[in-house]
Design a protein around this nucleic acid. Structure first.
Lengths: 114, 114
DNA sequence: TTGCGTTATACAAATAAAAGTATAATAGTT
DNA sequence: AACTATTATACTTTTATTTGTATAACGCAA
């Protein structure tokens, strides 16, 4: 039958998205490029959307994910806060183990009959 | 920090949804009520949407999920096929074990620091 | 033969989500 | 002082999703 397992995992606070794959990816790219605008551009996301997304997450989480600089030598930029880094690390680990876990479970239940 | 783990698991065929929680729920209700229309009503889903959803799944899966009767003593009705029942059973089992697995993983990674 | 509740289907309408546009403020650098 | 790339923010426009409406066919029962 060849069905493919797909899933999406995220974290919520008060019923609203507080972290997930998208934010993880963006934060990684901010870390790499030093700019939220560039991070957004890399994944073809509008800057305003990326900005709103991060702003909303910060509000829900109760701490900042980005340290912003407005103006300055390269116009400004953003970098990751310590709390953001910790959350990223935890979430990434969780994602990896969940991936292994779900895939082996899938094999066990769906593959042994076909 | 009290973040809540949320996730969604589904099956795809050729990159398109082929089964998931929504369909599982609908099929359960069809089984119980004997009617797709009633099943849809119970979850406040429009009949046309439920109908399209099931039709699309069937096309992708390559077999029927419902045995339909049009007209007849109570206007008609639908019941579950054997293939549908098997898929439901497998998916439900998978969901249950995945749930346990992800929740204990979540505890392990996120709860031990706070 | 009329009525009933359902399946089947096409479309239109309404909502929601995403993307894009525009503009101000900022602070180093040239 | 002017220039630059960025953050910050409000809107508008576009696109996608969801919901609702309308209609036909069906077959049993009264």
């Amino acid at each position: 039958m060849i069905l493919k397992l797909r899933y999406k995992i995220w974290l919520e606070k008060n019923g609203e998205k507080a972290f997930g794959d998208g934010p993880l990816d963006i934060l990684h790219r901010v870390e790499k490029t030093g700019s939220l605008r560039q991070a957004a551009e890399e994944i073809n996301m509008s800057y305003s959307q990326a900005w709103n997304l991060i702003k909303d997450l910060e509000k829900r989480l109760g701490f900042n994910l980005l340290k912003r600089k407005v103006g300055g030598e390269r116009g400004g930029g953003s970098e990751i806060t310590e709390e953001a880094r910790e959350l990223m690390t935890q979430f990434k680990l969780f994602r990896e183990e969940a991936d292994q876990s779900l895939n082996s479970l899938y094999k066990k239940i769906f593959k042994e009959k076909d």
